[in-house]
Amino acid sequence: MSYDIFAHYYDEIMDQSVYDSWLLYVEKYTAGKSGLNIMELACGTGKIAVELAKKGHQVTGVDLSDEMLSLAYNRMQEESVRLALAVGDMRSLEPMGDFDVVTCFSDSLCYMSDENEVAQVFQSVNRNLGDGGVFLFDVHSLHQVNNVFPGYQYIYQDEEGAFLWESFAGDAENSVEHDLTFFVDSPGNPGLFERHTEYHRERTYPLDVYQRILAETGFTDIAVTAEFGVSEVREDSPRWFFACRKA
């Protein structure tokens, strides 16, 4: 499936205000500082990376998909900012510099299949942070994965086609599976639609597991919050936000 299709619907269905909330969360830990060296893991189409660059930071966007990075490059050109973009697997990043901040948002870490892969990501981040550098990320909560997602359905339509999102409980503990189906106009065949599908698996862990793995991989001053850092964690919080420093 073309990532142009996925990106079109992703940007359409995503509440745009959520990007402002992510940026405000970053600003809590960068307030009063300019020209920071920031890496955004799983940068996708580059929306957050571009906004950070607009604030005067030097931003490197890393994503596993070169197609997504192509869309991030187009966004960078349209917004007249400069980003460094690199294809990379966040489980096995080589040292790319001593970054002041590394971010990983939009529950991207939940695509890791087990605790070992989560630890690999944290080790990769640690290798790329300068001493005292800040690591910011979010994940789905247990409540979101086990009580909200199973049975969830969403349908979106516009002039270019339709998008169906269905979620089911996964086989692994604290996991969820998403079926995404896209119906888009067939090029050269007006009135006919092509069907494209995507299948996503996500998994999360109890808070103490994330905290333990962070400590084991060289992080300290671990703070966990909800609602983009403005609330304490509750049993029904949909997403957890982590802030920590390289020891």
Rank of each mutant, 00 (worst) to 15 (best):
F168Y: 15
V101L: 09
Y73H: 15
R195F: 05
A247F: 08
G161H: 01
S186K: 11
D11L: 10
Y25Q: 12
G218A: 02
Y154K: 14
L52F: 07
L129A: 07
F228Q: 02
D15M: 06
D208M: 11
S141Q: 05
F241Y: 12
E235F: 03
C104K: 00
P238R: 00
H143W: 15
Y154H: 12
L24D: 15
H196V: 08
F137E: 05
A247L: 14
W240H: 14
I213R: 00
Y9H: 09
I213N: 04
Q144N: 15
L214W: 03
A31Q: 15
L214V: 07
R234L: 14
T225K: 14
A215W: 05
E117I: 12
I5R: 05
Y210H: 13
D89F: 04
V18M: 10
Q58M: 02
K55P: 02
L52V: 03
N146C: 10
M68D: 03
F242A: 09
A162F: 09
L64K: 11
V148D: 14
E235A: 06
M76D: 03
L129C: 10
N116L: 08
V209W: 03
K33L: 13
L83Y: 01
S17C: 07
S34N: 04
N128R: 01
Q16F: 08
M14A: 11
G46Q: 07
S124F: 05
K47C: 00
D208L: 13
T30G: 05
F122L: 09
G229F: 03
K54F: 10
N174W: 12
Y73S: 15
F242V: 10
H178R: 10
A172P: 02
E67P: 02
D171Q: 12
Y154F: 12
D107P: 06
P190E: 14
A243S: 13
L23E: 10
S108M: 10
M39L: 15
D114R: 01
Q77K: 15
F219V: 06
P238K: 00
R239Y: 06
E216N: 13
E232N: 13
